[in-house]
């Protein structure tokens, strides 16, 4: 079974000057269970739109979107999907614990259960000591952990990430990579993420989809068979990074 499957998906947007802008053309994509898929490409290749289509926030003009083999329009299990944005989007008036619990509030989970689940997730992302801190009191890495925690608290089967770590320092970014890999393996999650960082794609993903811009099309799909954890400095990873750069 594949958790996400796209068949010849296309999408155009109406530009402000009234002209049609084709963003995606004829996209096929398959995300097997427990896999990590990276969408890589230059800016303007519709990566984020593709993620929004999978998340059901944007409807495609052509093609089919299947989630757990169910057409996206009939899919009701949105709670099993979480979305992590490029910005942490933590509410400044909420503490870390309150921010992390947002999704549970949306789903109407009772307070006591919410508190327990938030506590567990804060432990998971290493923020248990900062439960009552406000976002501005956290460092960039901690804020990113909080945003990750907010995505994980609903126990999603699919985690979508739109360049989630691009604003972090390199060392903290690689810490976050380790966290995501650890938690994905632990929870049996599938991850689909957008990045323009080739090295990030090779370190995390077992499948890399290279997109070509204007309109966004799949140029090639690569499988990375290296065992985890992958050291970005190892020659095998460096070789895959080099090959991927060539195809971009």
């Amino acid at each position: 079974m594949s958790v996400v499957r796209l068949e010849s998906v296309g999408k155009s947007f109406m530009r402000r000057d009234g002209e049609q802008l084709e963003v995606l053309r004829n996209i096929d994509l398959e995300v097997p269970e427990r896999s990590i898929v990276a969408l890589v490409g230059a800016s303007g290749c519709g990566k984020s739109t593709l993620l929004n289509i999978i998340a059901g926030l944007v409807q495609p003009d052509q093609g089919k979107v299947l989630l757990n083999d169910v057409p996206s329009r009939e899919f009701r299990d949105w709670r099993t999907m979480a979305y992590m944005f490029q910005e942490d989007r933590l509410f400044p008036w909420r503490t870390t614990a309150q921010n992390v619990g947002l999704g549970l509030e949306a789903f109407g989970v009772p307070r006591t259960e919410r508190r327990e689940r938030v506590r567990k997730v804060l432990e998971l992302v290493g923020l248990d000591k900062f439960a009552d801190a406000f976002p501005h009191e956290l460092s960039g890495g901690m804020r990113s952990r909080a945003a990750l925690g907010r995505s994980l608290v609903t126990e999603p089967a699919i985690l979508l990430m739109d360049e989630p770590f691009s604003k972090l320092d390199p060392s903290i970014r690689s810490q976050m990579h380790d966290e995501v890999l650890r938690i994905a393996a632990l929870k049996g999650m599938s991850v689909i993420f957008v990045t323009h960082d080739v090295e990030e794609a090779v370190v995390l993903a077992d499948k890399i989809v290279v997109l070509h811009p204007r309109p966004g099309r799949v140029r090639e799909t690569r499988t990375i068979a290296l065992p985890y954890p992958r050291n970005p400095l190892s020659p095998e990873v460096a070789e895959d990074v080099r090959l991927l750069r060539l195809s971009l």
Binding site: A55, L57, W78, R79, M81, A82, Y83, F85, E87, R89, F91, W93, L102, G103, E105, A106, F107, T154
Partner: peptide, 24 residues
């Protein structure tokens, strides 16, 4: 708008968006 978009990914109801994002 980004907070509202985030709430949409959780399929948050309009009333909850109002009380949890607009009000604060």
């Amino acid at each position: 708008r980004e907070y509202v978009e985030l709430a949409q990914t959780f399929r948050m109801s309009r009333t909850k968006v109002l009380t949890k994002i607009y009000l604060p």
